[in-house]
């Protein structure tokens, strides 16, 4: 399983550098997107999963769900950092500044803040059950703000960020090869996340 994943990632990296053609307007820089988009996708996915397992914990009080929620959040913070940094580098190369509070930058920054707050909260409570309960409640509450932010942020900041890959018209405006490579990269990144996640949860189960 690990070998397949490794080969897959190597394949994606090869494809990104040797198969994908330079994009119109962006040139060679487009290759960063094949790292940036999958990583950003995983950081949002991890947030959803973490909130989902928090609900499960509050319903069942099974400590396993708390471990899962915590593992997803720690990995999410890592991927979120990678997405922020790669996005900032991309922004410097294309827009001329590392940071300008573009709506996408603002929302990824808020995601970073929420992950950070969640993990700090976890580390500051000693008792295991209490920690699980309180952090689950916080994960749920912070999840609640996300739809509001999606509505409110674009009204305050002007965006330069390109439309998501599948834009509002539902049309794909990309080269077919790029789409396939991008999907493969998203898949690889998600699989990598899942592998690390399982490893963390398993470790926790062994030590418990």
């Amino acid at each position: 399983m690990k070998l397949i994943l490794l080969l897959w990632i190597m394949g994606v990296i090869y494809a990104v550098f040797y198969i994908v053609p330079p994009a119109e307007g962006l040139g060679e820089l487009v290759r960063i997107a094949f790292f940036h988009i999958p990583v950003a996708w995983v950081s949002v996915l991890a947030f959803l999963l973490s909130a989902g397992w928090s609900v499960q914990y509050l319903r069942t009080r099974d400590i396993q769900y708390d471990w899962k929620s915590s593992a997803a959040a720690s990995l999410g913070l890592l991927f979120c950092l990678l997405a922020t940094i790669s996005g900032a580098v991309f922004a410097k190369l294309t827009w001329g500044a590392y940071w300008n509070w573009d709506p996408r930058q603002t929302s990824i920054f808020i995601l970073l803040l929420i992950y950070g707050a969640y993990l700090v909260l976890r580390s500051s409570i000693q008792e295991e059950k209490e920690r699980a309960r309180i952090s689950a409640v916080y994960a749920l509450l912070s999840f609640l703000t996300v739809p509001f932010l999606v509505f409110i942020i674009p009204r305050f900041y002007f965006s330069l960020h390109p439309e998501p890959v599948i834009n509002s018209a539902g049309k794909l405006e990309m080269d077919t090869i790029m789409i396939y490579v991008l999907l493969a990269a998203v898949g690889a990144c998600t699989a990598l996340f899942w592998q690390c996640f399982n490893y963390m949860v398993l470790n926790k189960q062994k030590s418990a």
Binding site: L113, I114, G116, L121, S142, I153
Partner: peptide, 15 residues
């Protein structure tokens, strides 16, 4: 910790 936890939740209202 109080400030750290409150800020993300308050943000939509704050802006």
């Amino acid at each position: 910790l109080f400030t750290v936890l409150t800020f993300p939740i308050l943000l939509p209202q704050f802006l």
